[in-house]
Design a protein around this nucleic acid. Structure first.
Lengths: 139, 139
DNA sequence: CTGCCTGCTCTATTACTTATAGAACAGACC
DNA sequence: GGTCTGTTCTATAAGTAATAGAGCAGGCAG
C-alpha cells in the first residue's frame, strides 16, 4: 500500500489516510481480508504520530470498512463485491455528490464533461479483480 | 432562495450555506447578476450570527462565485454559462470526485449505479435556463 | 443633512477539533 | 520473556467554528 499524504494540506491527516484506504479498496488494490500495516508501523513509515493513524483506522472501522482486533491487526472487512450499501448511506452520499457536481457545473464544466470525468474515475476502479499486493505490504 | 440548514449537522454552518448557494447556482435558481440577501438579513432569517454568514459569503467570493461590495451587496458573479473553470480547479476537483466515488464503490454500489446517480444529479441542474426568482428573494 | 442599510474590520470568548506526546494494559505469538 | 498488537487514559498546543459587540466608510432614500 503506497500511501502518499500531503502534510501541508488543509485536509486533516487522518482524513487523508481514510480517503487513500477507501480509494485503494475501490481500485481493488486492497481486497476483503487484506491486512493493513499496524497503527504504530504506519505512523512510523509516514513520520506521524500513531494516534493519528489510530483515528483514521477507527473512522474506517465505524464506516464498516475495517476490522480491528489484537489478534489479526487491521484487516479490510468489505470491498466492492461484499454486498449492497447499508441503509442510510445512499441518501447522505447523494447529497454530497450533488454538492460536488454542482461545484464543477458552477465553475463552467458542462454536464457532458462532468459525466465524462465520473466515467473515467469509475472506470479506473477495480483494476485488479483478483488481489495483487494484498498481504504484508509496506508503505 | 430557500435555504435549509441543519444546525445539528457535523458540517459547519458556513459550509452548508456555501454548498446551498453553489447548488442553487448550478440548478439555475440563481443566475449571474442575481442578488443575495445581505449578511445581516440572512443571518436574522436563519437565526444565526451574521459573522457566520459573512464567512460563507467570503468563502464564495474567494471561490470566484460572489461579488461583494457596499454598493450592490452580494451578487452572483458567475454561473454555468460564464466560461471554463479557472486553472487548477479541475485537478483538485477530480481528486475529491475520486474519493467520493470510491466511497460509493466500496459500499457496494456498482459502477452503473454510481454513474446513474451522477447522471440524475447533473440532469437536475440548469432546470431554469432563464432566471426565475433571481431578485429580491427571501429565505 | 439625517438616518438607515450595506460590506468590512477589529477584538474577544467559548467550545470543539487536530495533532502531538507519553504511559499503561491485555491479549497474541514466537 | 520479550515483542508485537489494538485499546485506553491524560495532557498539551494550535487551530477552527460560532458566538458577540463595537465601530467605520460608503451608498441611498427621506
Amino acid at each position: 500500500m503506497i500511501l502518499t499524504l500531503d502534510l501541508n494540506s488543509e485536509i486533516p491527516i487522518y482524513q487523508q489516510i481514510r480517503d487513500r484506504v477507501v480509494e485503494a479498496v475501490a481500485a481493488g488494490e486492497l481486497a476483503e481480508g487484506a491486512a493493513l500495516p499496524s497503527t504504530r508501523q504506519l505512523a512510523a513509515d509516514l513520520g506521524i504520530n500513531f494516534h493519528t493513524v489510530n483515528k483514521a483506522y477507527d473512522l474506517l472501522r465505524r464506516e464498516g470498512l475495517l476490522l480491528l482486533n489484537r489478534k489479526s491487526g487491521a484487516v479490510v472487512r468489505r470491498d466492492a463485491r461484499s454486498g449492497p450499501p447499508e441503509p442510510g448511506f445512499t441518501d447522505d452520499w447523494g447529497a454530497r455528490l450533488r454538492t460536488l457536481l454542482a461545484e464543477a457545473t458552477v465553475q463552467g464544466l458542462d454536464g457532458a464533461a462532468v459525466l465524462a470525468a465520473c466515467g473515467r474515475t469509475v472506470g479506473g476502479f477495480r483494476v485488479r479483480p483478483e488481489g495483487a499486493r494484498v498481504e504484508g505490504e509496506s508503505v
